[in-house]
């Protein structure tokens, strides 16, 4: 995997486990006019959300559709404001006047990579657009940043002149990540970034996110309904059910020793939980009904 050209971030010098993003007692519900549509999907009302994303860590957010996962992503991107409670960024309360600066330091990566790209603008222009818009940067510096971002996500320069329909889904998701990285963010909010991709491409993107976290000290919020990718990438996991947090803790706590029936049922529903297992785990993650061809964890 290509290494970043730039020196590591100044921020990584700080203690790497301090909170970078924090939700304190956050409530949110969509306005009444839009509620009926949301209710069909299970209602996206958030209730007393407390969550801490730590610097340099990958934090997983698991939940079924309608649990409010994407609403949390929107809150953390400053796209919607909480009804009650506070959001802290880097220890400071997020207020409307800080929003513009905040948005540059927290960048999103969304689910459908091709939908997130403008179909008629070359890839290169789309990646540097945030720089031109936000900083009016010199073109030579733009090009240097562009080259760095492209190589950081493992793409070659020839993709820059192409249009979105000429590239694959995996490449498009790398382009989206490059576009987020070019602003040198501290946090990436990834909302189902691999769900629309093929399995081998999923693995490539998961590896890329993991590498970026390690080499740049990036913090990640990784939102997914796929427990496997969360388990692979994240050291801390929060489980959301109908707008409330039901379980939160380290990966091992949540996956190996789930406290709630809900998390247990989620784990139980993962087909062949033993698949992909390479090393011995302390306990069987779950029991499976008899008669299925499962790969039990070694105990």
């Amino acid at each position: 995997m290509a290494l970043p050209i730039e020196p590591p971030h100044v921020h990584t010098a700080r203690a790497s486990s301090e909170p970078i993003l924090e939700l304190r007692n956050v409530d949110f519900s969509y306005p009444a006019a839009r509620r009926s549509a949301a209710q069909v999907l299970g209602g996206s009302r958030l209730h007393k959300i407390n969550m801490i994303i730590r610097r340099g860590k990958a934090h997983g957010l698991i939940g079924e559709s309608g649990s409010g996962k994407s609403t949390i992503a929107k809150l953390l991107l400053g796209l919607i404001a909480p009804e009650a409670g506070q959001i802290f960024f880097d220890g400071e309360l997020l207020t409307p006047d800080r929003l513009a600066a905040f948005r540059l330091r927290v960048q999103p990566v969304f689910q459908s990579p091709l939908d997130a790209l403008d179909p008629i603008t070359p890839i290169g222009k789309q990646i540097i657009a945030p720089l031109l818009v936000n900083f009016k940067m010199k073109s030579s510096e733009c090009q240097a940043r562009l080259a760095a971002a492209i190589s950081a996500v493992g793409l070659s320069g020839e993709i820059l002149g192409k249009l979105p329909h000429q590239i694959s889904g995996g490449q498009a998701q790398r382009v989206n990540i490059a576009r987020a990285l070019i602003l040198h963010p501290e946090v990436l909010i990834c909302d189902e970034p691999v769900s629309a991709l093929d399995m081998t491409v999923q693995a490539q993107i998961l590896n890329l996110l993991s590498d970026l976290r390690e080499s740049r000290g990036l913090s990640l919020l990784f939102i997914s309904h796929d427990i496997r990718s969360v388990a692979y990438l994240c050291s801390e996991i929060t489980v959301l059910k109908r707008g409330s947090i039901v379980e939160s803790g380290s990966r091992d706590e949540v996956l190996l020793d789930p406290k709630t029936g809900y998390m247990k049922s989620l784990l139980e529903a993962v087909p062949n939980s033993g698949l992909g297992l390479q090393t011995a785990s302390p306990s069987k993650p779950c029991s499976q009904p008899a008669g299925r061809r499962d790969l039990p964890a070694e105990g």
């Binding site: 399995m199 081998t200 999923q202 693995a203 490539q204 998961l206 590896n207 993991s210 427990i227 496997r228 990718s229 388990a231 692979y232 990438l233 996956l255 190996l256 784990l267 993962v270 939980s273 033993g274 698949l275 992909g276 297992l277 390479q278 090393t279 011995a280 785990s281 993650p285 964890a297």
Partner: peptide
């Protein structure tokens, strides 16, 4: 390419 559900994560 399948991420493991438990155990120590390795490179996919």
């Amino acid at each position: 390419a399948v991420p493991p559900l438990s155990g120590r994560p390795r490179r996919l």
